[in-house]
Amino acid sequence: MENRLVRDIRFYLLSQYYWWRGFLVYREQAAMWLIYSIINTAYSYITVAVIYAVSSGIAGWSYYQMLFLVSTATIVMNALYYNVNINWLMDLLRRGGMDPYLIRPYGRISIFLSAQEGISSASAILGGFVMLLYSAFKIGFNAIGLLAYLTLVVVGGVTLVLFTLMLIMLFYHLLKSANFVQRLLSFVQQASQYPLAVYGFVGQLIFTLVIPVGFASYYPAKAFLSSISALGFSEAIAIASAISIVSYVAFNKLQIYYTSGGG
């Protein structure tokens, strides 16, 4: 019997293939969304460039280190948007569009990630990756820092996806509207592009324990810059994993009570 995980991944990849084909049918629109995504991403780079051009910047962070953090946040948040199109998912849930997907023999998470697309975020991911490489080469890096960075980005990214899916299900039950989640994540995206230290103790708590974005952008960047201890790294992994498990369990619990248009 084929491994369940392999089947789920194949389902996800196949869905992506068809979403991309559909996206490219409307070439003008596709180009415009990709440009939009790049312009929106440029906001943060422009802000950082202006800050460092007119001042000494943020304490403990050089210009290239800030670029690195912004790039990491850009990649992580846009990877989230690529996989979880909040409005689309909420619309599917509300109109019963999710029902034909849910009877398929795949895991719930794979189904949710495959039933919609956020392909327009791809250009921002690519742009973020280019800036990430540029800033990384300017900073210089070592193998341990890179490995710690990649580990935290993956763990933090998965946590963020599971947390968002749980949030969507929760707000489907509460309000049947995507607006709150959408606005919350736009806010979080903006906040994730700066060092958590600027938000003070309360801000750091909010952006790690309440909304786990810090584990996907700030802590990985700190790990890459070798300014996180082994204990700090382990703690980040442990807390992010705990939030992932809680989110996953809550997501599945909320699924049990899912009803849609038509009952």
């Binding site: 802000t47 001042s55 943020i58 606005r183 700066y194 600027v198």
Partner: peptide
């Protein structure tokens, strides 16, 4: 109301960032 709330929150992000910038630049 949601828009109003999140616009206020969004302003606080830039407030926090620019506070850090002014404190570090000592100007």
């Amino acid at each position: 109301f949601l828009t109003l709330g999140f616009r206020i929150f969004a302003s606080f992000i830039m407030v926090a960032v620019w506070t850090a910038v002014y404190l570090n630049s000592d100007v």
